[in-house]
């Protein structure tokens, strides 16, 4: 096969002829479900890859799974990890962080429109 000249790779269709139904009454929920499932699919692939990595290491004499279980984090590692975890929460709950800020600062659609007017014709 190696001496066969390489054929141009096609770009196959990734969309479907025909209207996709909207299942949820609220616009956008269908899209979010699709995105969540793609992320879940990817998480599954990554998790399985890690599992594969452990098994390959075992074949080479390193019991990675057992070593992972046996690892005792020292205080420095605990701190590093906790920081990473809290940062992750921050990204995950970015939306509620924004909403809380709006409540605290009394941001609203009205104040936003007022800002537009002020910038356009006001004294700021």
């Amino acid at each position: 096969m190696s001496d066969t000249p390489e054929l141009p790779r096609p770009e196959l269709a990734r969309t479907v002829r025909g209207k996709r139904p909207q299942f949820f009454a609220t616009e956008g929920v269908d899209e979010v479900m699709s995105m969540v499932l793609v992320l879940a699919q990817e998480l599954h692939a990554v998790r399985e890859r890690l599992d594969t990595a452990e098994r390959v290491m075992t074949r080479h004499g390193i019991d990675l799974a057992a070593e992972i279980e046996a690892l005792q984090p020292d205080e420095a590692l605990l701190r590093t990890r906790e920081q990473a975890l809290q940062d992750f929460y921050g990204r995950l709950f970015q939306f509620s962080r924004q909403r809380r800020s709006e409540l605290e600062h009394k941001y609203s659609d009205r104040t936003y429109r007022e800002t537009l007017d002020k910038v356009a014709t006001g004294d700021i």
């Binding site: 390489e6 790779r9 269709a13 990734r14 479907v16 996709r20 139904p21 949820f24 479900m33 499932l37």
Partner: peptide
């Protein structure tokens, strides 16, 4: 709605996961 949307999305994931393979495995 959840059932039907899940089913549809599973169908989409299914086909696209194979399209990826065919495009990559194309020369062979």
């Amino acid at each position: 709605q959840s059932y039907a949307a899940l089913n549809r999305t599973a169908q989409e994931l299914l086909w696209l996961s194979v399209v990826d393979t065919i495009e990559r495995d194309w020369p062979r």
